[in-house]
Design a protein around this nucleic acid. Structure first.
Lengths: 197, 197
DNA sequence: CCAATTTTGTAACGATCGACACAGAATATG
DNA sequence: CATATTCTGTGTCGATCGTTACAAAATTGG
């Protein structure tokens, strides 16, 4: 087991690819752009990641495990499901708009919404989106069992509703909405919590 | 003023282009696909529409004037702003999922969300999205003036919130959500109407 | 019928894309 | 040092993209 050692940091390169994909999507981020952003020539890139599709999947997994997880973990914060959902939306309002270090939007919410994405990527992205719906659903179901929510609450509808608010916020962030504007929308959404008045 | 007459129906061809762009987005709908779907050879297409970008803009305008307008007009239906918003969301729940005649999603809500779109198109699409926000805002402002909404209601927040629900529903429709599922989410959103409970 | 004009289909253009062949350079092992 | 192995950069491959010459075909006006 020998060979010339790799001259670039694989994780740093993956992070750079993630940011470029995050900002430009899959198709618009050309291999030329990626090589430049990652500081790696294309044969090295292919040796390390296989193909552009596989590189995207690796970057997407990295995104889900870091940026995405950081926001979605807030759902578990707080004593009640209501607090968890509010924390989630507030964190989203803070994270979704463009900042000095991060592009606007969300790779999970906005990825593969048009059919111009490779099917293999679309399948993975949509699966993660459904996972978000499922974890929202699970949190609300627990709240129902705890008696936090009225017994006749429509959990399917409520989880789908709060997911739609999150996804809509992602689109508006892409259009330039500020954290304050998204917070106000999230605040308005929390009024729909069952038993509010 | 003479010349060989055009052999294809310009409006029918534009409608076909609209459906293809609606389903596949801008980049993934190649000129080859478009020519096939429109039943026109590419030089004829260029003579009639100018370029692929201009064709998209024409198809998008056609979409906004027909499919989009039909849904958004519901905002004016009903005696109250609340009824108008509910009608709008219910119409969206019916229209957004894939049907026998229409693709899933919405060209306005989901168009140009990634940066892989030509800037000229992104500018137009985002302007229309902002117009949606403005018309929602205007309807709620009128309701405020009529006393339908409490005097301290945050109109900016409320319009942005309902827009986000609509946009989120569009994403979920792309992921395969049914009209019934979207209706239930819309119903949950209406609970957030000020003074509910 | 003749000339002018516009559309049509075939075929091809240059540009760009993702992907890779190749040879040189850098390491580990014996 | 010699060999095997792996990485690196240059250059290029075939495919596909949007776009357009070109000539034949079809119409109107004189």
């Amino acid at each position: 087991m020998a060979g010339r050692p790799r001259e670039f940091d694989r994780d740093a390169a993956l992070e750079a690819a993630m940011h470029l994909f995050w900002r430009k999507g899959f198709a618009a981020a050309s291999m030329h752009d990626l090589c430049e952003a990652m500081g790696v020539s294309s044969p090295s890139l292919y040796a390390a990641f296989g193909s552009k599709e596989e590189l995207y999947l690796a970057a997407f997994a990295h995104y889900a495990a870091t940026e995405g997880q950081a926001v979605w973990d807030r759902l578990a914060d707080g004593a009640t499901a209501r607090a968890g959902v509010e924390n989630l939306l507030m964190a989203a309002a803070e994270t979704l708009p463009k900042s000095r270090i991060a592009p606007a939007g969300c790779m999970v919410a906005l990825g593969a919404v048009s059919d111009e994405w490779p099917p293999s990527i679309a399948r993975v992205v949509r699966k993660v989106r459904l996972d978000l719906l499922r974890s929202l659903h699970a949190r609300l179901e627990a709240a129902l069992a705890d008696g936090e929510l009225p017994a006749m609450t429509d959990i399917d509808a409520l989880s789908r509703f709060y997911l739609s608010v999150f996804q809509g916020m992602a689109i508006q962030a892409k259009d330039g909405a500020t954290p304050a504007e998204l917070r106000s929308a999230a605040k308005a959404a929390m009024v729909a919590w069952p038993g509010e008045g």
